[in-house]
Nucleic acid binder design. Structure first.
Lengths: 207, 207
DNA sequence: TCAGCATCTGGACAGTCGTCAAGATTACCT
DNA sequence: AGGTAATCTTGACGACTGTCCAGATGCTGA
């Protein structure tokens, strides 16, 4: 508690930039450690080791572990809630959108598997712990909106209104992705290809 | 290692029943602790406290923590892979099956939320750790088969063949359930009712 | 150049973890 | 009933955890 106020005093006392910048940087190291080890095995010393600093500095920039992690989760949000907007913007037909959506999901499955499992790990943590819950629900809502933009665009192309709610659409595609992630990390070949096909197959059925 | 062999010697030397029975009992306490605290915060002492024994006894019946947890996961399997078979057996029409399936999912969401979040926690752990992966994939496969039995029965009633693969069907319904679990544990009212409706709505679209 | 403040290091702390083993307790067999 | 093996308790160990702090280091402005 006293650490919190003193940290905030430092912020107001001096140039905010440097302080906030280092917080950002340390949060990045935290996400790196979390993605690699998972929530259960990530310690402050591990996080510090991913950064260029010693473990003590974390308590200079963050009041405690919870504040560091919640800050990291919020930072994490930025990278994962606009992923398919390019596909939506660039598609010129329903068919193109369908294929592009599937391909984009498959691509991020291939490239960012560690980060995705981190997301699911954090979301699951929020089922046990109150601390992240608000942020998790917020991010989840934004991800749902992201998927819904795809559905809506698809509906525009076909001229038919969507036949599911945003909630159901998101849940279905997210379930698909999660399943593919499990398959991929288990070393089963072709998980990404299958995901692309399944997504392209499911989209017309929901929109 | 030496603990493993000596444990197995004990098994063969004496009545297997008692030994296996206690393992079962301790695994039950482990599941209880895991469901309450989550994987990240479950210690052997916590597990022992849920049982009637002291923490030392766990190493008498299990070589180490990993063996206890994998054993618990396998035990866990039994309760969660036949949940909807009654609904399938008792339904006499597509409509009845549809409603029954949704109602059954909503019911277990209401009654067994802690156990379900444990399952997702363990499945997620397997994304980071090899130890449970085989068992998790096995359980997931059985859950998929369970859902597929519902789909097949529905297809029998309607006379139309399913329009999705077992993988896609399972992923979609599982995503729906997971989303409802998050909503419910976040305290949002009506999550179970909405799940029942969404499931009943999605089933005809996939089968 | 030097004082003063921001930043960072490294170690110490109390607590918890998984693991182990010596000894107490219990149950079973002759 | 007595002795032997199975079962359980208790306390200890080294390693690791989050947290805190005294002091080293670096930077800035006079």
């Amino acid at each position: 508690m006293s650490q919190v106020t003193s940290a905030q005093e430092r912020i107001s006392r001096r140039a905010v930039d440097k302080f906030a910048q280092r917080r950002e940087q340390l949060a990045g190291s935290a996400l790196q450690a979390l993605a690699e080890l998972g929530y259960a095995r990530t310690s402050l010393r591990e996080i510090a080791q991913k950064s260029d600093f010693s473990h003590g500095v974390l308590h200079y920039y963050f009041a405690d572990k919870v504040e560091l992690l919640t800050y990291s989760v919020r930072k994490f949000e930025d990278v994962c809630v606009t992923r398919y907007d390019d596909v939506v913007a660039e598609a010129t037909s329903a068919e193109e959108l369908k294929q592009g959506f599937g391909a984009a999901m498959a691509a991020t499955l291939r490239a960012d598997a560690a980060m995705h499992r981190l997301w699911y790990d954090l979301r699951n943590q929020s089922l046990f712990e109150e601390s992240f819950r608000t942020d998790v629900l917020d991010i989840d809502g934004q991800r749902q909106a992201m998927v819904w933009r795809v559905i809506q665009r698809y509906a525009e192309f076909t001229g038919q209104p969507p036949r599911v709610t945003p909630e159901v659409a998101y849940a279905a595609f997210d379930g698909l992705f999660q399943q593919a992630l499990l398959q991929r990390l288990a070393g089963r070949d072709g998980a990404a290809d299958r995901l692309a096909a399944d997504v392209a197959d499911l989209l017309p059925r929901l929109a």
